[in-house]
Simulated scan of single mutants.
Amino acid sequence: MSNIAHLAAQSARQIQQAQAVVTHNLANSGTTGFKADLYQAQSSYVDGGAVNGSAVAGSVGGGVDYSSGAIAQTGRDLDIAITGEGWFQVVADDGTLALSRRGDLRVGTDGLLKDATGKTIMGNGGPVSLPPYSSLSIGTDGTISIVPMGELPTNIVALDRLMLVNPPPEALVKSADGMIRVANMDGLEPDANVRVAVGALETSNVSPVGAMVEMITLARSFEQHIQTIKSAEELDASSASIMKLE
């Protein structure tokens, strides 16, 4: 294969990987609190010995867009959205601690406060466990209050406060399970400056229109690289035929 075809094939492979990332983002454009994945690539120049200085496209890993999504009002008392920077601390499916911006909360049959995917919400005192109650409310500072079952509406009891943290963005890492973490999850301290909006949810920060445009652009670029490979193969075949005639 000629250098032209080889370079085009390398680039086409990178475009396929980028398409997979964009497709994943688009599929989660309606997921509450979702943060878009990013794809990074760069040109590497090959040199040394008899090898010429061709540029080869290569992946240099991905990243995550941690920007906030829009706040959508729902009017539901257990829907909360972090306003500005900050994260909820939750228990992931594997039992480890993780970070989330998903605030569509509900009370499980075991009395634990969970999000819509079943992940347990952490409070400053550990997993938030609710005793029988007649009403439940969450303050803008994350304080969880209830009126115990059988008590007067004025007998409001503060149970706990949501574990709201705000580690630096450069410390955040998206794990293979899709959850956000830092190196030392147990070492995170609650941040009193993190605030929540009640009766609202943070939407995904993925723009469906932008993702569709990016997919179309990548698809066209992929087709161009495939056409380049075909043209290079035809050129190789023509050169071989000429050499045979000689």
Rank of each mutant, 00 (worst) to 15 (best):
F88G: 00
Q89H: 08
Q89N: 03
Q89V: 15
V90K: 06
V91F: 11
V91P: 01
A92W: 13
D93A: 15
D94N: 14
T96K: 04
A98N: 10
A98Y: 08
A98C: 05
L99K: 07
S100L: 12
R102H: 08
R102Q: 11
G103P: 04
D104E: 14
L105R: 10
V107G: 13
V107L: 12
G108A: 11
G111Q: 09
K114P: 00
K114N: 08
D115K: 02
A116S: 13
T117F: 06
T117Y: 12
T117H: 13
K119S: 13
T120M: 13
T120F: 15
T120G: 06
T120S: 13
T120R: 15
M122N: 07
G123R: 03
G123T: 15
G123V: 01
N124E: 14
N124T: 05
N124F: 02
G125I: 08
G125Y: 07
G125M: 12
G126Q: 11
G126P: 05
P127G: 04
V128N: 01
V128F: 05
S129D: 08
L130F: 00
P131N: 07
P132C: 14
P132D: 15
Y133D: 10
S135R: 01
L136W: 06
S137K: 09
S137Q: 12
S137R: 05
I138E: 00
I138Q: 01
T140D: 06
D141W: 05
G142D: 11
G142N: 10
T143H: 05
I144V: 15
S145N: 06
I146W: 10
V147S: 01
V147A: 01
P148V: 09
E151A: 15
E151P: 02
L152H: 14
P153F: 00
N155P: 04
I156D: 07
I156N: 02
A158Y: 09
A158P: 06
D160N: 13
R161Q: 12
M163C: 03
M163R: 08
V165A: 14
N166E: 14
N166L: 03
P167L: 12
P167E: 14
P167K: 14
P168D: 06
P169C: 04
P169Q: 11
P169I: 13
E170D: 07
E170W: 04
E170K: 07
A171R: 06
A171Y: 03
L172G: 01
L172A: 00
V173W: 03
